[in-house]
Design a binder for these strands. Structure first.
Lengths: 357, 357
DNA sequence: TTGAAAGCGCTAACAC
DNA sequence: GTGTTAGCGCTTTCAA
């Protein structure tokens, strides 16, 4: 007779209702057995769980549950370009680490959403079952627009910077970059090269595009540092499409083959700086004897390789952003817009020194 | 009058039904406007979208959609210990990278599910809205059990190895480890130390626990290499709770302070090896002059630092596993269980050489 | 092409 | 402590 108790449910997987029928209790009781164990007697709970096991029922369907409770217990994250690039940059990994840790602490999952240009897959954003979004180092593009169109809260990290009514976490880009530029200038360097992720063509006299706001801030930091020096300073700015090892390497090759070689190469990320160092090493250029090199982010590997860099609290940035998001989601988005700017700190190591002769 | 068209929907957010009412069309038409643009005229679609914009409707609710279609367009991933550790190991990051790339190619999101021992949060597994799971380098614990209880397909990567009826992707651990051990023995080393993630106490004569199957395979590889050498070989095996820089460092300190110091330290991961190198450098021990060091995984940094290692296709492993999972999910889990073993390759660099005198 | 009707599987009031 | 009822918001046959 056993099998006939199971309602007319022969096809498909068993549902909570089937378990209830099989156990001879109501659906509520089964639901409570899974979600509020304290709301029913232990014996009854065992009964329900046994019935579930017998039927091969493995617990409430997550999607149905999410629809009903209107929460997914997950945080969405979109980040610049494709996921591939993101995992290549140690600073991005460190950020992710911070986010993941916050998620772990608050019992949330972390949904990584491809937001790459290859597939203009905005649909992935619209279809993500999450309670809110982290927007990390993105251009102000269609993906960001899709995120902000959704009713869930969002927190922007680093960029875009030109969205006023959304929580923001970032660093003092201008001050941080000024400090490393000032350091190099104080060492006596007067022929500098900047290697950066940024616009294809950089006209130092023109206005900056908002889409490169971080780049803009750093250039303003550079200007401030240079303004504090009485001498003439020669500056070349070389930009590439990503903040990667390869770009650092390629720009260095171009730099060292050019007519006026710099005595210091200041990079806007450690990833770029490692590429610079690799190219210089291959060319037999001594660092810092012939050329000084500096990075930005101060990832773990920077210490290992003696790279002068600007430390930023990358891990904490991720952690804080995720907590801000979860708090806002919990409070149903009430409260004033927050804007948190985290400090940076110059870390001088062996890769920077006085210019030759 | 405008606002009064909106049914009795004053409270809460607008739904698809509200948009339909406002636009004067059926719910089907609104749904089609978002999901099947080719199923209705462009004009009608514009009408619907305009109504949606007017109401502040940002598209179908993902959870309701998922419930109805029974698919989440997402892949779940659980990995060893807590997320924190995972992001610290470059090999794990590379694996993630491969998974992320496959997800991007197939228009899926990637849900990272905390499976850390701190919070025994099995509920996160049961509540994840995903179409299938990747189980990466896990002990055969309650989390894995929770994954396998769910009706969605799963693919196991690396471990656990003792689950027969689930798709599996791994490498030839025994052969790979044998090759690096043989290399060190051929160089003439006869006093070896193995530094590994593994069981607390390792009794070389005892049976191995299944929970350390990878460790077991590698020890069998070691034995095979040693068996091919006529001389007596002295071997110390030192294990730690994780495969990290810190463990490598600590075990090396213990090793170098012991009575019989090895002439070669063979590690089961590059992360461990970097820790070993850090400790040796601090002690002023020359590598490979006094002690040779080898790693496993051949992460990018291994090449930079001249570490002899065993390369494995870490990125491809992630990519392949994700594709296998998506294919199985697409075919509704039909078909025979797959088992893919990927090749490894010894990469000899400067960190290994003949023993002293 | 478009519309009407029928649930997807679940939880949370509320009554008992 | 347990059951009844009423949807959560959507997609999808099917018929028009």
């Amino acid at each position: 007779v056993g099998d006939f108790e199971d309602t007319a449910q022969t096809r498909g997987r068993p549902t909570l209702a089937d378990v209830a029928a099989h156990a001879g209790v109501s659906r509520t009781t089964v639901s409570n057995a899974y979600n509020r164990p304290d709301q029913l007697s232990a014996a009854r709970r065992e009964l329900v769980l046994a019935a579930a096991a017998e039927l091969g029922y493995s617990g409430p369907d997550p999607m149905a549950r999410s629809l009903r409770t209107r929460s997914a217990d997950a945080v969405g994250l979109i980040f610049s370009a494709n996921l591939s690039v993101a995992f290549s940059d140690p600073a991005a990994v460190e950020f992710l680490h911070g986010v993941a840790q916050a998620c772990e602490e608050r019992d949330r999952s972390l949904l990584l959403i491809p937001a790459g240009p290859p597939a203009a897959n905005i649909a992935m954003v619209s279809r993500a079952a999450v309670d809110g979004f982290l927007i990390y180092s993105m251009p102000n593009d269609a993906h960001v627009e899709a995120v902000l169109a959704r009713p869930q809260p969002a927190v922007i990290v680093d960029s875009p910077t030109d969205i006023a009514d959304v929580d923001y976490v970032g660093i003092d880009d201008r001050g941080g970059f000024r400090s490393v530029c000032a350091h190099v200038l104080e060492l006596g360097h007067r022929r500098l090269a900047i290697v950066s992720h940024g616009p294809d063509e950089y006209d130092p006299t023109a206005e900056f595009e908002l889409s490169h706001a971080v780049f803009r801030e750093r250039m303003l930091g550079l200007r401030a540092a240079v303004a504090a020096v009485p001498d003439a300073v020669d500056i070349q700015v070389r930009t590439g499409p990503t903040s990667s090892h390869d770009v650092g390497r390629a720009q260095t090759a171009a730099l060292m083959d050019s007519a006026v070689t710099p005595t210091a190469i200041i990079c806007t990320s450690d990833a770029l700086a490692f590429g610079v160092l690799a190219e210089l090493t291959e060319r037999g250029v001594r660092v810092p004897g012939q050329v000084s090199v500096t990075g930005f982010d101060d990832v773990a590997a920077a210490a290992d390789r003696g790279l002068t860099s600007v430390w930023q609290p990358t891990h904490e940035k991720g952690h804080l952003a995720a907590l801000m998001l979860l708090d806002r989601a919990a409070s149903d988005q009430a409260g004033a817009v927050q804007r948190r700017i985290l400090p940076t700190r110059l870390v001088v190591r062996a890769s920077s020194g006085p210019p030759p002769d």
